[in-house]
Simulated assay, not measured.
Amino acid sequence: MASSTADNVLPKALQFHSASPLVDIGANLTHESFDRDLEDVIARAQAAKVNTLIVTGTDLAHAEQAVELAKQYPSVYATAGVHPHDASGWSVELAHKMKALHALPQVVAVGECGLDFNRNFSTPAEQEHAFEAQLALAVESGLPLFLHERDAGVRMREILTAWRDDIRDAVIHCFTADRDTLHGYLDLDMHIGLTGWICDERRGHHLRPLVNDIPLERLMVETDCPYLLPRNLPAKLKGRRHEPALLPWIVKEIAQWRGISEAKLGSATTRTAQRFFRLPTES
């Protein structure tokens, strides 16, 4: 086990304990920043009652790494997909390799996939091609979809509408868009993942009145760590690396804006995640 040193132990003010077991549906634990202390990170998550971690696979290499983590830790599961940033690399060979990953018991969703018209690291045409190919893989495997969308809500909804009768379920991970986009997804029976973006007074304030629009049975929570560290944490964190043990703070924030208890929100999002990803109910 990695040693507990000053730079990998959370300050006491950030040692949260959830009122109910939580599922972090989006944790990028294959990121290099977790290389030195991953075992401690997972132990801290368990201590905070973040009992289940779904590690995001954004390309072939990271999906394979996520699967290896899921094999090593019983509380960890994996997704497998190609992020729109990397859509230009989509190929028949890659599709076959993704299909093989989707058949593994450790993989609980197809993704992270979708559209990102904000940065366009791959062209919109390349993104749409890779996205529709992965929709087809989701139909074939029967797995739900873990989706990324940025500045592409209209086109994303058009594509999902055409596929909706065939795909099982889908979650819009790290939702940050506006009310019309949210309701467009809800009209398609999409699930919504919320992150620490809602804890950011600079850019998350528009999400706060929207949390009551999301049915509890459609809402899930995530850190998207090591990214999106909540800005309003009660103590500073050396290195500013987000991690799953901080998920209870995000739940607290969402519960506050929804006007319900943290326990009720946590229990509901966990039940939703267990159903969505077909996780063991004891998680």
Results as ranks from 00 to 15, higher is better:
residue 2 A to M: 07
residue 8 N to V: 01
residue 13 A to H: 15
residue 16 F to C: 07
residue 21 P to H: 11
residue 23 V to E: 07
residue 24 D to Q: 11
residue 25 I to T: 15
residue 26 G to Q: 14
residue 27 A to P: 04
residue 30 T to E: 09
residue 32 E to S: 15
residue 33 S to N: 14
residue 36 R to K: 11
residue 36 R to H: 10
residue 37 D to Y: 11
residue 38 L to P: 12
residue 40 D to S: 10
residue 43 A to P: 05
residue 46 Q to T: 02
residue 58 T to S: 03
residue 59 D to G: 01
residue 62 H to W: 12
residue 63 A to E: 01
residue 73 Y to W: 04
residue 74 P to Y: 15
residue 77 Y to P: 12
residue 77 Y to T: 10
residue 78 A to S: 15
residue 79 T to I: 10
residue 83 H to V: 02
residue 87 A to F: 08
residue 91 S to L: 01
residue 93 E to W: 01
residue 94 L to V: 05
residue 95 A to P: 03
residue 99 K to L: 09
residue 103 A to W: 00
residue 104 L to D: 11
residue 107 V to D: 15
residue 109 A to V: 00
residue 109 A to G: 02
residue 114 G to L: 07
residue 115 L to K: 11
residue 116 D to Y: 14
residue 119 R to V: 11
residue 121 F to D: 08
residue 124 P to M: 10
residue 128 E to T: 09
residue 129 H to C: 06
residue 133 A to Q: 10
residue 135 L to K: 05
residue 150 R to M: 07
residue 151 D to N: 09
residue 152 A to R: 10
residue 154 V to I: 10
residue 158 E to P: 07
residue 159 I to V: 15
residue 160 L to P: 11
residue 161 T to L: 07
residue 165 D to C: 08
residue 167 I to S: 03
residue 168 R to M: 13
residue 169 D to E: 14
residue 169 D to K: 13
residue 175 F to L: 03
residue 175 F to I: 05
residue 176 T to D: 15
residue 177 A to P: 06
residue 178 D to C: 03
residue 182 L to C: 06
residue 183 H to N: 11
residue 184 G to V: 09
residue 184 G to I: 05
residue 185 Y to C: 02
residue 185 Y to H: 09
residue 186 L to R: 01
residue 187 D to F: 07
residue 187 D to S: 07
residue 187 D to I: 03
residue 189 D to W: 02
residue 191 H to V: 04
residue 193 G to S: 03
residue 199 C to S: 03
residue 202 R to M: 10
residue 205 H to P: 03
residue 207 L to C: 00
residue 210 L to E: 10
residue 217 E to A: 13
residue 218 R to Q: 14
residue 219 L to F: 05
residue 224 D to W: 09
residue 225 C to V: 07
residue 225 C to T: 05
residue 227 Y to D: 14
residue 228 L to E: 06
residue 229 L to T: 09
residue 232 N to C: 05
residue 232 N to L: 00
residue 234 P to N: 08
residue 236 K to R: 13
residue 236 K to L: 12
residue 238 K to W: 04
residue 245 A to I: 03
residue 247 L to V: 09
residue 252 K to G: 03
residue 253 E to D: 02
residue 253 E to Q: 01
residue 258 R to P: 00
residue 260 I to P: 01
residue 261 S to W: 00
residue 262 E to C: 02
residue 264 K to R: 11
residue 265 L to G: 02
residue 265 L to K: 07
residue 266 G to C: 01
residue 267 S to M: 11
residue 271 R to Q: 15
residue 273 A to E: 13
residue 274 Q to D: 11
residue 274 Q to N: 04
residue 275 R to A: 13
residue 279 L to E: 12
residue 280 P to W: 02
residue 283 S to W: 02
